[in-house]
Each structure stands twice: as structure tokens, then as C-alpha cells.
């Protein structure tokens, strides 16, 4: 035993390899392995009558995903929803996180963080069905908006964006809050001393400092929205997103579902690359 310890002490690289091999194997097998399996099955086909997977190689599924109009429309719609949800969440999270980190009294800050985290304790389905009740005809939203001559938007694309923006908001608030906490108050005071108004301080001091946090939060909101299919089924009316196409095909045509499933993977990879290029991740 002591010999082994001495040996490892002399060979730091081996020591490191021994420590990291288990988590690395887990990452490669479970995470990359399943991605690879997904990608591989996209090249298979199915028996049209029994829906059994037939292991005949073909590019037809991937070609279908690229060339079929409806798949393109749905993919673009899904990206649009993910972008809209991300933008809404950034706009909502910035003031909330700023208040939590800078304005609220220190002993309230912790409570506010807990309050933001609380919705994460409730089941996803409960929250979405609650929104179905809120948005339904004659529901609370209808009741509130009726005096203003408006009504609930009903079930559809706007409802999906609203519900997803609600669901993923904590994932945006928390990183921004963490970023703002690290922002020294002195900088805000210095900016004010130099004569900058609130707007100028926000643009020139706060925003550049929290941009990496916003980018990190946006990776959550963007990818979670892009993959969602349950909220759409419940409040989406007749809308379908890329996740619904995967879900609809997974029962009958697994290879096509796999080909469709690669679309969000590719989009998210591109998004991560774009975020990285912008330099927002460098200071994380």
C-alpha cells in the first residue's frame, strides 16, 4: 500500500489519470455515448407496417429533415420560441436580479433568493396545468383582462412563450444575481461620481460586467425551450415544436425521430459556439 502511494507520488500524471478516469468514462459512455447512439440510429430505417427498426443504412431521414417544408418551418418556429423566451427572461431577470443583489436590504436578499428558487420545488406538470387553467376561457387571466376590453390569448404560440418564460426564469435570475453580487458597489458609486446617470451606468458599467452571466443564463433558457414538448402539448393549442415532432415519431419511426433530434443538438452547439466567440464565456 505504501509502495503504491509512493509510486503514485512520484508519478503525478498517473495520479491525475486515476482520479479523472471514472468521471471521464461516465461522461463519454453515458453522455457522448447516448448522443452517438442517437446519431447512429438516424441512419437506419423502419418497416412501414410494423414500425420495427430495420438496420439498413440510408441518408433518407437526414435528407428528409433538411428538405421537408414542414420540418423546416417547425425547426424555425422552435428556434424563434427559444429566442423569444430567452429575450423575455433577460428583460425580466435583469431588474429582479439587480434589486436582489444591490437594492434590497442585506437581510432580505437571502429571502429573495429562496423566493426565486421556490417554484423549482413544484412539479413541472403542476405548473403547466396551472397555466392551462389561468389561460382557459373564463379563467383568471380572462377575468382580469375583461374590464380592459381584452381577453386571454387562449392556447397557442403566445401561451407557449409565456409559460416557458415563466418556467425558466429562475435559471436566468440566478446566474445574473451571482454576477451582480460580484460587482463591487464602488464601481457604481464611481460612475455616479463621474456624473453618469442611471442609464449610462447600466450601459457602461453593469451590462459589460454581467454579460457573461446573461450568456450563461441564456444557454439554460435557450436549450430548455428548444427541447420542450410538454408545455406545448398542454397550452400550445394546435402548435407543434421540434420536440413534438420527435415525440410524435418516436413511437412509429425511431430513426426519423433521431434525425429530428439532431436538429436541436446542432442548433445548441452552434449557439454555444456563438456565445463562446462573443467572448462572454471567457470570464466565467
Amino acid at each position: 500500500m505504501t509502495a503504491l502511494a509512493a509510486f503514485l507520488h512520484r508519478h503525478p500524471r498517473l495520479r491525475l489519470a486515476g482520479l479523472l478516469s471514472a468521471p471521464t468514462a461516465w461522461l463519454v459512455v453515458a453522455y457522448l455515448g447516448s448522443l452517438a447512439a442517437l446519431f447512429l440510429s438516424a441512419f437506419w430505417t423502419t418497416d412501414p407496417f410494423t414500425s420495427d427498426v430495420v438496420r439498413i443504412w440510408s441518408l433518407d431521414n437526414l435528407r428528409a429533415v433538411v428538405t421537408t417544408d414542414v420540418f423546416r418551418t417547425v425547426a424555425l418556429r422552435s428556434i424563434g420560441v427559444a429566442v423569444a423566451v430567452t429575450v423575455i427572461d433577460v428583460l425580466l431577470a435583469l431588474p429582479v436580479a439587480f434589486y436582489m443583489a444591490k437594492v434590497a436590504r442585506p437581510r432580505h436578499r437571502r429571502l429573495l433568493v429562496v423566493a426565486v428558487l421556490t417554484p423549482l420545488w413544484a412539479s413541472y406538470l403542476v405548473k403547466v396545468y396551472a397555466w392551462r387553467a389561468i389561460l382557459a376561457e373564463g379563467g383568471p387571466l380572462d377575468w382580469v383582462l375583461r374590464p380592459l376590453g381584452l381577453g386571454s390569448p387562449g392556447f397557442g404560440l403566445p401561451a407557449v412563450v409565456a409559460v416557458l418564460a415563466y418556467l425558466w426564469l429562475p435559471y436566468m435570475i440566478l446566474p445574473i444575481h451571482a454576477g451582480l453580487e460580484q460587482l463591487p458597489d464602488k464601481l457604481l458609486e464611481a460612475s455616479a461620481d463621474l456624473g453618469a446617470g442611471a442609464g449610462r451606468t447600466f450601459r457602461s458599467v453593469v451590462l459589460p460586467m454581467v454579460l457573461p452571466s446573461v450568456a450563461a443564463g441564456s444557454v439554460f433558457t435557450f436549450s430548455l425551450s428548444l427541447g420542450d414538448y410538454i408545455a406545448v402539448q398542454i397550452v400550445g393549442g394546435r402548435t407543434q415544436l421540434i420536440g413534438n415532432l420527435v415525440y410524435a415519431n418516436i413511437t412509429l419511426d425511431l430513426p426519423l425521430a433521431a434525425a429530428l433530434g439532431t436538429v436541436p443538438v446542432v442548433v445548441i452547439l452552434l449557439y454555444l459556439l456563438a456565445v463562446r466567440r462573443s467572448g462572454a464565456l471567457r470570464s466565467l
Partner: peptide, 29 residues
Amino acid sequence: MRRTPALAAALCAVALAATACSSTAKPSA
């Protein structure tokens, strides 16, 4: 794909009948 004639393959691709085209290989249909 390799076992289907080019024209049929092209038609298959156009019709997105990935599934329907390979069925000829399987007797269970």
C-alpha cells in the same frame, strides 16, 4: 439505398418515404 435503382431511390428521397422504400427488403410487410 445501394440496393435500390437510382430512379426509385430519388423518388423515395423526394417523397420522404424513407420508411416505405426499404420495405421491399422485409417479407413481414
